[in-house]
């Protein structure tokens, strides 16, 4: 395999994930759910790239497909220049030492029969041959980073609050010192005051461990806070990508505009003027032709129904997939 030199740690090109729909006695494939359709983005070292969108838009599937937790149907993913799709299971397993996943629900992602010591030492046992002393040291170091103490090592997940559980699952993902993590809605299951604590922790760790991250979330405020660049997804496709502040200040895609305006404002004197979208997200098993957003778009024209817009650069580093954006 030839080494490709690149400024990016991770490059995703035209990623596709289709899920077969099976019916009948013979489980014949009668169609496909187009969960992810031609998604391309890149993540620089030490950069946080956020994927934002509503439920069912394919953001989590994209995250899983990047790490091959779900096998992509098409497209390529390059990590440090290696194409992940070409690696064998064994090679991929070794790669995962460097690429980790933080799950959404800490109540479900921690094995209830393992105590904190087992939960945190397991990834090290799998990926490294360490002496018991080194193992203790690494686990101890990680505990300090997440703000917990060694006397909590013997405890089991049910003895912790939601926020503490999420700290443990973050520690479990980061204990192998990966350079890249996918974090799938890591704060959605938590209360507001706890969310802020976990977000601060993640940002500290990201700085300290020089992590690159794909941060998946439906919460637009959280995304704005944590990410440097962002991709807005709708019905399996990227609608707009760019520098986070730029996209939030000057959204160009009609979907991004509606999405951003729908966030409730925290000022009762200035109740936000929502762009209220009509109707629901179309069925991804039967996506509309042309632009995926045309069924709900106020700018929809004939061309939008016919032709699928490509993601085009409209300003340096700012791309949008819309026929109406100049």
């Amino acid at each position: 395999m030839t080494e490709r030199k690149s400024e990016f740690l991770l490059e995703v090109r035209k990623l596709q994930v289709y899920f077969p729909i099976r019916k009948g006695l013979m489980k014949r494939v009668v169609g496909h759910v187009h969960a992810v359709e031609d998604v391309s983005f890149s993540v620089r070292p030490r950069e946080v790239f956020a994927l934002v969108g509503e439920s069912g838009c394919g953001k989590s599937t994209t995250g899983s497909a990047v790490l091959r937790l779900i096998e992509p149907t098409g497209g390529q993913v390059f990590f440090r220049g290696d194409e992940l799709g070409r690696l064998s299971e064994e090679e991929m397993r070794l790669k995962r030492r460097d690429m980790q996943f933080i799950f959404q629900n800490p109540y479900a992602s921690l094995n209830p029969r393992m105590n904190v010591w087992k939960l945190l030492s397991e990834p090290l046992r799998i990926h490294f041959q360490l002496s018991p002393g080194e193992l203790r040291e690494r686990v101890g170091e990680m505990l300090r980073l997440i703000g917990m103490t060694e006397d909590q090592l013997e405890r089991y997940p049910h003895q912790f609050s939601g926020g503490q559980k999420q700290r443990i699952s973050i520690a479990r993902a980061l204990i192998t010192h990966p350079s890249f993590v996918v974090a799938d809605e890591p704060v959605s299951a938590l209360d507001v005051s706890i969310q802020a604590q976990i977000l601060n922790l993640m940002m500290e760790l990201q700085q300290e461990m020089e992590l690159s991250m794909v941060f998946i979330s439906h919460d637009l405020n959280v995304v704005r806070h944590i990410s440097g660049s962002v991709g807005v997804m709708y019905l399996g496709s990227l609608m707009e990508t760019g520098d986070t502040e730029e996209v939030y200040r000057h959204p160009v895609h009609p979907y991004t505009r509606a999405l951003l305006s729908a966030v409730p404002s925290h000022d009762p004197l200035h109740r936000s003027r929502h762009i209220v979208l009509e109707g629901d997200v179309p069925n991804p098993a039967d996506p509309p032709g042309g632009c995926p957003f045309h069924t709900r778009c106020s700018l929809c024209s004939g061309r939008c129904r016919e032709e699928r817009p490509e993601l085009r650069e409209i300003a340096p580093g700012h791309c949008a997939a819309c026929h109406h954006v100049e």
């Binding site: 005051s193 802020a196 601060n200 405020n221 925290h266």
Partner: peptide, 22 residues
């Protein structure tokens, strides 16, 4: 509570948090 939600998206990098748990 208000500071925790409004500091999201604000300029400062460090979010305001209420220490401890309910």
């Amino acid at each position: 509570l208000l500071r925790a939600v409004t500091s999201l998206g604000g300029a400062q990098r460090k979010l305001y948090t209420i220490p401890g748990i309910v």
